[in-house]
Design a protein around this nucleic acid. Structure first.
Lengths: 181, 181
DNA sequence: GTTACCATGTAAAAAGTTACATGATTCT
DNA sequence: AGAATCATGTAACTTTTTACATGGTAAC
């Protein structure tokens, strides 16, 4: 399981509350490891029990108190251990692919419309990623360490979305052509 | 949830037992919707309750009896309904990306080794898919209907694996370069 | 005044993973 | 004799998702 480890990575960059973490998981790290606030609160609790993170309450004026979490020595050890351990390659789970595969058992036109919708969603995400790339990493060849790693992740997201847009276009063209015949 | 629907698609192509379905999920449909035999048995039971599939036991000689499942009218209706309903775009969950992102907090060399391992795993899968493409779809332009849809799914798998191999190569080159400095 | 943001959680249901269990047959 | 294949399942556990719940502040 990598949610703990994704949280460790994120907290190691910057300590924060569960709420703040949930927001980070809405973007950046959450692009390749999505998690909701419920998951994060629950996992943080477990991580305190494991002593991977410490927690202290911070009073705020005009706002509710918050609990700020920080990675402990044990947490850094666990992260290092996990980083060096082999894992399974990611598995895809694609509703859309199942729909395309089953298109001839229902309304093919509806599946074509769904493909087109996803194509646009992926194109939008791609634009977001490309804008990040342009703004945050204008000169990639100079990057090193953490900045390089952040850049590489973004590159992975860009490649994945490009691939999906291209696949949607390929499938759309073929299915529309088939529909006309 | 798409496991029910993936099973409906698969059973609609050919009726079969849970065991047979589990084997199909080892390849083809399982490449983009993995499922173990336990999941399949449990889901089939639920689908019988929902009357999406019917089940009759078949005695075999020299082999244990098996239960053959068949899609019902209600099952086909449900499938058609689902095919036409909009879904969320697939979400990625990549341990490897988390590891790359956190590489500077542990042993970068170990992460590089892990990247190389995944690169090879994806290259292997890609070869498997490319072999299918060559063997099963030598002349894609002539395809239509179900055969076309099967081909398009395979194309999606090919694109995804190609993208992953390329990304691993990009990340490996950059991280090795960074490691040397 | 109502929407959005900050901040935390509980509870239950659904889905997925892992381990264990059985028992016959066919192939080497 | 031992391994692989056929065929089904139970049980326990972990993870994820969805719904519900609270309560203050700030902006429009």
């Amino acid at each position: 399981m990598a949610l703990e480890h994704a949280i460790l990575v994120s907290l190691d960059e910057r300590s924060g509350s569960g709420y703040e973490l949930a927001q980070r998981f809405e973007k950046s790290i959450g692009f390749f490891w999505p998690a909701t606030h419920q998951q994060i609160y629950r996992t943080l609790k477990r991580m305190v029990d494991l002593a991977w993170v410490s927690c202290h309450e911070v009073a705020q004026d005009g706002r509710p108190d918050k609990k700020v979490y920080e990675v402990t020595e044990a947490g850094r050890d666990e992260l290092a251990r996990w980083l060096a351990s082999p894992g399974e390659p990611e598995t895809v789970r694609s509703d859309l692919a199942v729909k395309v595969r089953g298109a001839s058992l229902g309304d093919a036109k509806a599946v074509i419309a769904e493909l087109a919708r996803h194509r646009d969603l992926h194109a939008e995400r791609l634009d977001v990623y490309l804008a990040f790339e342009k703004k945050d990493f204008p000169d990639p060849s100079t990057l090193s360490g953490r900045r390089l790693h952040q850049y590489l992740i973004l590159r992975g997201g860009i490649r994945a979305e490009q691939g999906l847009v291209e696949w949607c276009d390929e499938a759309l063209a073929a299915m529309r052509e088939d529909d006309r015949r």
